[in-house]
């Protein structure tokens, strides 16, 4: 038996155990009806115990290997045919020299890179300009100070 088969059979065993447990809990929930078969409160209690049993079942089942495996297969089955259609249509479009979504994606990525680079350069330039402005201000202040000093001495 291969590892995959063992995993599947273990998963099935776990699922069977889980299912049996849930069924027996559901049956137990009807126990409250034994004393009072038609009382609405007893029916409500039975209902809530039944929901709890099912809820616990789903909580465990949704974590189990069979579910995760089924989910993966379902995902594959849902995407694969659409991917094939996209590929075929893409080829067809290219034959007609038309742009596909993939081409647009490429252009968008290139544009985004360009925009990011431009923004970065812009920011760097702004920072340099700010720095130059600050230095010019400092220079102007020192020139002014020197001029005032010179005026006072004369």
């Amino acid at each position: 038996m291969s590892d995959k088969d063992r995993k599947v059979s273990d998963g099935l065993g776990d699922w069977m155990r889980l299912w049996c447990e849930t069924t027996s809990r559901t049956m137990e929930a009807f126990g409250s009806l034994a004393t009072n078969p038609v009382a609405p409160e007893a029916c409500r209690e039975t209902r809530s115990r039944m929901f709890q049993a099912w809820s616990d079942y789903w909580e465990q089942y949704l974590r189990s290997t069979p579910f995760l495996e089924a989910q993966k297969q379902f995902g594959k089955a849902a995407t694969e045919p659409r991917k094939q259609i996209h590929d075929v249509l893409g080829q067809f479009y290219h034959e007609l020299q038309l742009a596909t979504a993939e081409d647009i994606d490429q252009v968008m990525r290139a544009l985004r890179r360009l925009a990011e680079d431009a923004a970065e350069q812009h920011e760097a330039m702004a920072a340099r300009l700010n720095e130059m402005a600050a230095r010019l201000d400092a220079l102007a202040a020192s020139v002014e100070g020197a001029a005032q000093g010179r005026a006072q001495t004369t």
Binding site: S55, W58, L62, K72, G75, T79
Partner: peptide
């Protein structure tokens, strides 16, 4: 368990219905 690249290759955006069904499945009962 989940190949997000394959999923987005055919879906472009993550559809609201997909997210909604995932949230519903968290507590199905």
């Amino acid at each position: 368990n989940f190949d997000v690249d394959a999923f987005l290759e055919v879906n472009a955006n993550c559809p609201a219905e997909y997210l909604q069904s995932c949230f519903l499945l968290l507590k199905p009962v």
